[in-house]
Design a protein around this nucleic acid. Structure first.
Length: 485
RNA sequence: GCCGGUGUAGUUCAAUGGUAGAACGGGGGACUCAUAAGCCCUAAACAGUGGUUCGAUUCCACUCAUCGGCACCA
């Protein structure tokens, strides 16, 4: 069993406000980070922002800002999530940081030294109507869907390419190897299995080398290619390197070696880049691939992708402002599917909030602590998390679900215990018993308080501030002065 | 077109070769420590058609529906 863990999210692209889908990803990673810290593991948790590339360059021009000013403003919105979502990451990687830039260039040199970078004509299709480059997947019958009358211009440009094709067999071998926290010996470099299968099928079909640079004269907003003034790195190549630059590569090798390899969280739209292209790049640079990649689904709303025009956008920052950090963390961890798409509406959020936070957890804390503060003369001394000889928590009410990234099931278990506490109060009626048998009643109340403390420990990775609030009430033997939710 | 996933109560999910469980929501009841909260009871579902089998929701085939992948948008 490893004694340390390095976790990272993908770096969101800063061409828009933080999306609820990214909030899901980073909260999931945060729960894992907090959970392993609770077990006493050294944890390094990385996140950040992806700040180069054409889209950002264009957005900056549109907003009449320099690209650097633009990304500074937008990166700030992502930095603010730390407080809003109570995130415990250790490092925030910005791909415009000078250290990252230097690392990306060194990474390029390593790949080049391995003979995996070469120059080639890259043909791109350009729609004059849109004034945009088009990819094949955007076209319908070879024409731009919005300008089907106009033929596309084909522009050839000299780019650098990465020898992806060379790594097909090594990737397939990687997909067969058991990964982390393996179950029944199954390969799990990518979780869930359906996504591992998807990327394996993709690689089996054969790999084409991909372009990793752009002409600087057309798109200057990127990291300079070493020894070529005319080219900048394509944003993908640069951004992925943050997973190693964030832990000191290449300058602080001791730190790098301590943490690498990484456990990555990513959306399903990122599968190919994260699980095929990036491992191949690492192999080329002579570095081991990631330990595991956890792939989550999307959050939809009323069955559709969120979009401004549909008016179904759920903004995580606004949700936090209205309902509080832990309510949002609660919802994202319990009421979403860890691996599939989840439909989220404000109605569902409110329903879950009322049923499970206000009427469930919040009410239970009130009723138990009211009993305790009324009838116990001093605070109950409660135990925090305790570990057995194997390093597993022994008073933790949640089984293997967190390790398996099934946060919703872990939360279901916790809420089952909350329900048991309510039922126990109903069965034993300490509020009546206190009049006839105060000793027995106080024992029941003390038991309830300890139960609350156990719940607080379990909740700590998911809802850290709530866990602290519960423990503080227990320590001072007092009922909440205002509702928790 | 090719490949893969899914289809179970109003909703979100679960289980199982011997006729299905939970949560939320709905309906009813007794109580009162608590945030008119909680507890108890209750109505409510296996997409369709065939096949294998003593017996299928569970296995197989097909149909229908639905979601995803099939490379340079990050």
């Amino acid at each position: 069993m490893p004694s340390k863990i390095y976790l990272t999210t993908t770096l969101p692209y800063v061409n828009a406000d933080p999306h609820i889908g990214f909030a899901l990803e980073i909260v999931t990673a945060d729960v894992l980070a907090r959970y392993y810290r609770l077990l006493g593991w050294p944890v390094f948790f990385n996140t950040g922002t992806d700040e180069h590339g054409e889209k950002i360059y264009r957005r900056a021009l549109e907003e009449k800002l320099s690209p650097q000013d633009y990304v500074d403003i937008y990166a700030q919105k992502f930095v603010q999530l730390k407080q809003g979502l109570n995130l415990s990451y250790d490092y925030f990687s910005r791909t415009t940081d000078s250290r990252h830039v230097a690392a990306a260039q060194e990474f390029w040199r390593r790949c080049a030294a391995a003979g995996d970078i070469y120059q080639k004509q890259y043909e791109l299709k350009y729609c004059v109507g849109c004034e945009l480059e088009k990819t094949d997947s955007e076209l319908e019958n070879g024409y731009c869907p919005t300008h089907p009358q106009q033929a596309l211009e084909v522009i050839a440009e000299e780019n650098y390419f990465f020898r992806f094709s060379k790594y097909q067999n090594q990737l397939l071998k990687l997909y067969r190897k058991p990964g982390f926290q393996l179950e029944a010996g199954l390969p799990n470099f990518v979780v869930p299995p359906v996504r591992l299968n998807e990327v394996r099928k993709f690689v089996e079909r054969g790999l084409q080398d991909f372009s990793i640079s752009r002409l600087k004269s057309k798109m200057p907003w990127g990291i300079a290619v070493p020894n070529d003034e005319t080219q900048v790195m394509y944003v993908w190549f640069d951004a992925l390197v943050n997973y190693i630059s964030g832990i000191g590569w290449p300058d602080e090798l001791e730190k790098f070696n301590k943490w690498w390899p990484v456990i990555q969280f990513a959306g399903k739209d990122n599968l190919r880049q994260q699980a095929a292209m990036w491992p191949a790049m690492l192999m080329s640079a002579g570095l081991p691939p990631a330990k595991q990649i956890i792939v989550h689904g999307f959050i939809t709303s009323n069955g559709q992708k969120m979009s401004k025009s549909l008016g179904n956008v759920i903004n995580p920052v606004k949700l936090v402002e209205e309902y509080g950090t832990d309510a949002v963390r609660y919802f994202l961890t319990r009421h979403t599917n860890p691996f599939e798409d989840t439909d989220v509406t404000l109605e569902k959020f409110k329903e879950a909030y009322n049923a499970n936070l206000a009427n469930g957890l919040g009410n239970l804390v009130s009723r138990v602590m009211k009993l305790a503060s009324d009838y116990l003369s001093m605070p109950i001394v409660v135990s925090r998390v305790t570990l057995d000889s194997k390093g597993n928590p022994s008073n933790f009410l949640v089984g293997e679900h967190i390790k398996n990234y099934e946060l919703n099931q872990a939360m279901d278990e916790i809420w089952w215990h909350i329900g048991r506490h309510d039922a126990y109060i109903q069965e034993t009626k300490p509020f009546t018993l206190i009049k006839t048998d105060p000793i027995a009643a106080r024992e029941i109340i003390a038991k309830l308080v300890q139960g609350l403390a156990d719940l607080a420990v379990c909740l700590e990775p998911f809802m850290p501030a709530t866990a602290v609030a519960i423990i503080n009430l227990i320590r001072t033997n007092s009922a909440p002065t205002q509702p928790l939710f």
